[in-house]
Design a protein around this nucleic acid. Sequence first.
DNA 1: GATGAAACTTACATAAT
DNA 2: ATTATGTAAGTTTCATC
Lengths: 157, 157
Amino acid sequence: MTALDLIDRKIVAQLMRDATQSVAQIADQVGLSSTPCWKRIRRLESDGVIERRVALASPQALGLGVCAVVILRAPDHSAEWRERLGAVVAAIPEIMEVWRVAGENDYLLRIAVADMAAFDQLCQRLAGEVPIREITSHLAIERVKFTTAFPVDTIRR
Amino acid sequence: MTALDLIDRKIVAQLMRDATQSVAQIADQVGLSSTPCWKRIRRLESDGVIERRVALASPQALGLGVCAVVILRAPDHSAEWRERLGAVVAAIPEIMEVWRVAGENDYLLRIAVADMAAFDQLCQRLAGEVPIREITSHLAIERVKFTTAFPVDTIRR
DNA sequence: GATGAAACTTACATAAT
DNA sequence: ATTATGTAAGTTTCATC
């Protein structure tokens, strides 16, 4: 896998912004003709730079009105516990995002559920399936910003 | 906008999982023929249930090795400060996710940058552009889970 | 890299049942 | 809802420069 040049990053930026664009449109945007642009896109996909193409939906329209960020502390820093948590969160679709963070044995989870009753049930399910030393919930009032587009423009080559 | 039935939710689930599928493939998955499936997809898009289609890229492949969750506390709970923060985070592409959470005047931010130097610069820029009472950084060691697919299967009708 | 043109697949629209 | 049909558009491959 070779390094990405400026044109590659422009292509990825375009596709992260709007993947409905045709190859010809993207070629225009980045200053290429269709064929070489198409070849670059294929290479970016086979190299794993572009991982997948997905539709983004509206949580409100889907009836998922409650979003929460849960911070939890592990009882220990064992590999067993980490694997256990990984298996549990993988099996729970309401848990959309999980980050293990440095410092303490802390994890941050982002959760999408229909209502507070569902959120309560989810917390109880989580606590029942994996031992947790401490858990703190932050209910989201407002989604101020959310994007899946990485800041490729700011990367220095 | 009418309520979503089971088939609608199956269609959205398929497209959130993989938007490269053709209408015919999705029709197969949800048990419809192409034409009505295509009409439903168009309706889901015009109703705003499906908001957009994007490519998801690999942060590592893009040279964005550092992910951090920043928790910050506002100096007050004024609308002015909220709007100020909104404008600032909208202008900074490294800030990918911002949630205003209940309870205290707290905000959670997810940030993607190339390295620790860039992270430090970003924190200083942020603190320089908007007054902040308190800021706490959590460096992500591992992305245990990340999905953009909402849990539509678990919604009760 | 650009261009042009095939061959193929899909999207889209319409009509009939 | 289905099947069928047709046109437009996009993708993919290839040959040539």
